[in-house]
Amino acid sequence: MRLTPDELNARKRRNLFIALGLVAFIILVFLTTVLRLQQNQADARAALEGPGVIEAEPAAR
């Protein structure tokens, strides 16, 4: 099977854009993961520090 120059050129360009799309998707997933981690960390810190400080004070005295 011999491919024409047009077919080869089109395939090359499609592959390039698929690669770019995949890289963009990987970056988006990475950014989403980082944002989620930050948000979850902040939530966890607030849950630990918020009511805990108020309750801990009388016990420390």
Binding site: M1, L3, T4, D6, E7, A10, R14
Partner: peptide, 13 residues
């Protein structure tokens, strides 16, 4: 019809 697609990225866009 060509053996392989000749569609360009612009067509997909």
């Amino acid at each position: 019809r060509p053996v392989l697609s000749t569609a360009q990225p612009e067509d997909y866009f």
